[in-house]
Design a protein around this nucleic acid. Structure first.
Ligand SMILES: [Mn+2]
Ligand SMILES: [Mn+2]
Ligand SMILES: [Zn+2]
Ligand SMILES: [Zn+2]
Lengths: 137, 137
DNA sequence: GTAAATTTGCAACAATGATGCGAAAATTTA
DNA sequence: TAAATTTTCGCATCATTGTTGCAAATTTAC
């Protein structure tokens, strides 16, 4: 049983062509992927709707997480092992390169806490940094 | 000359019905506005395209700024006085209430700096905090 | 007040995403 | 391993969001 199959089985997802191919894409890619990237790379293999539904189920199972971007395009990236179905707890900073426009999970940089005004109760914080990445500099 | 007209003139925008009405909405509202909010509140007055273009020109002039959200819906809020055309420099944290789903500029809370891995050069950072706001708690 | 510049509304289009449903594929059962 | 059951897929269809070109209307400048 290969790595892809293992991940799907572990998360109680049936092993189908689209899921295998898309999961493999995430494992190969070193940055985050947009829906459009995936559709481009899977070529003619799958229907657009299937790609949407596959990404949704991966998110629900805690296999991948969404990354908010300033231009409101959704990106997806693999979660670390400790995310569970229905409850993500990655809390790392994301970096978007203005040069190559790659989106990178900075797994080792945690989102800092900020002191909020009286009355505000924080639940979750996201931080996205734009700039030039290591490879483009 | 009222406040709205003053703001428009100061930013070298011709004073038109849509711009006046939409600017007034921002001045009245205490939170950020989505395109849909604006369309709802301006009722039948203007075309959808006009609202888009009005918001765009306000952003370009540095009158309002975009707020990224986790669900990838764009929100807009008034900039502080020191933003200029083509170059925003609000760098405050934004808060989104999970209860009333209001989006609030925390003007006094600046986005903290984070130490990035070797090679990464930061240019701009956004931080969005979700939780319960002062009024909902 | 008139000419020039800008903005508006409309039509048309593109991109993104959701849903219902029958056909196909995967998993379970025996 | 074959049949029964469950799940997923692909297609058609629709909704929402946002963009563009262009002629008509409005605003501004003179
Ligand atoms: Mn990440
Ligand atoms: Mn703000
Ligand atoms: Zn780069
Ligand atoms: Zn609230």
């Amino acid at each position: 049983m290969n790595q892809v199959e293992e991940i799907l089985k572990k998360n109680h997802l049936s092993v189908t062509g689209s899921r295998q191919k898309i999961m493999q894409l995430f494992l190969n890619s070193n940055g985050a992927l947009a829906h459009a990237d995936i559709e481009k790379k899977t070529g003619e293999s799958f229907d657009r709707v299937t790609v949407y539904r596959t990404l949704q189920s991966f998110v629900e199972k805690g296999i991948i997480h969404l990354i908010p971007t300033r231009d409101n395009s959704i990106k997806y990236a693999l979660c670390k092992d400790d995310c569970e179905a229905g409850h993500h707890h990655d809390n790392h900073v994301h970096f978007i390169c203005d040069e190559c426009s790659k989106t990178i999970c900075l797994d080792d940089v945690t989102v800092p806490q900020v002191k909020l005004p009286k009355g505000f109760t924080p639940q979750h914080a996201e931080m996205v940094v734009n700039g030039i990445c290591g490879e483009c500099k």
